[in-house]
Amino acid sequence: MGTMNSPADDDRYAAVHGSAQFKTLRRQSHAFILWASVIFFGWWFLGCALATFAPDFFRQGIGGPMNVGLLFVLLSFAFVVTTSAVYLRYARTRLDPLSERIRADLEGDLR
């Protein structure tokens, strides 16, 4: 059995969606995601371009079985882990407090 949403609840959620706090939360979230995506895909396209147009560069040995191409792939994994950690910290320090304020305003004394 589900709960029934009243029109008043719908109006309340619509008001929150249009509020300045919610717009700030979305803007901050989208700004981080945009820059992280630009940097990551730039790195990825750089790797694809180097592998395509400079394959000899990717084949250069660094030491033992390691070459530049393999190092590039390993750095890509490290970059993903680092980006995830940075986002978690950003969300914890910037996004979560704002979302908690929005939730508290929305729920009032229910929480």
Rank of each mutant, 00 (worst) to 15 (best):
G2Y: 14
T3L: 13
T3F: 15
T3G: 10
M4K: 14
M4F: 15
M4G: 05
M4E: 12
A8Q: 14
A8K: 09
D9H: 11
D10G: 09
D10P: 01
D11T: 02
R12G: 03
R12M: 07
R12A: 07
V16P: 02
H17G: 15
G18E: 15
S19R: 05
A20M: 10
A20V: 07
A20T: 09
A20S: 14
Q21T: 10
F22A: 03
F22W: 13
F22K: 03
K23N: 05
T24E: 15
L25D: 04
L25W: 15
L25T: 02
R26I: 01
H30K: 12
A31W: 15
F32H: 07
F32I: 02
F32R: 00
F32E: 02
I33V: 12
I33Q: 14
L34V: 03
L34N: 10
W35H: 13
W35Y: 09
W35C: 04
A36H: 05
V38F: 12
I39R: 04
F40Y: 10
F40M: 04
G42F: 08
G42H: 05
G42E: 05
W43V: 00
W43R: 01
F45C: 04
G47P: 03
G47N: 08
C48M: 13
A49W: 13
T52G: 09
T52M: 06
F53Q: 06
P55H: 13
D56E: 14
F57M: 08
Q60R: 12
I62S: 07
G63V: 04
G63L: 02
P65T: 06
P65F: 11
P65Y: 10
M66L: 12
N67P: 02
N67E: 10
V68H: 00
L71Q: 01
F72P: 01
V73D: 14
L74K: 09
L75F: 13
S76C: 04
A78Y: 01
V81F: 12
V81L: 07
S84T: 07
A85F: 06
V86R: 06
Y87Q: 04
Y87T: 01
Y90T: 04
A91W: 07
A91M: 03
R92Y: 10
T93M: 11
L95E: 05
E100R: 10
I102N: 00
R103H: 15
R103E: 15
A104K: 13
E107G: 09
E107H: 09
G108S: 11
D109G: 08
D109K: 08
L110S: 11
L110Y: 11
R111A: 12
R111H: 13
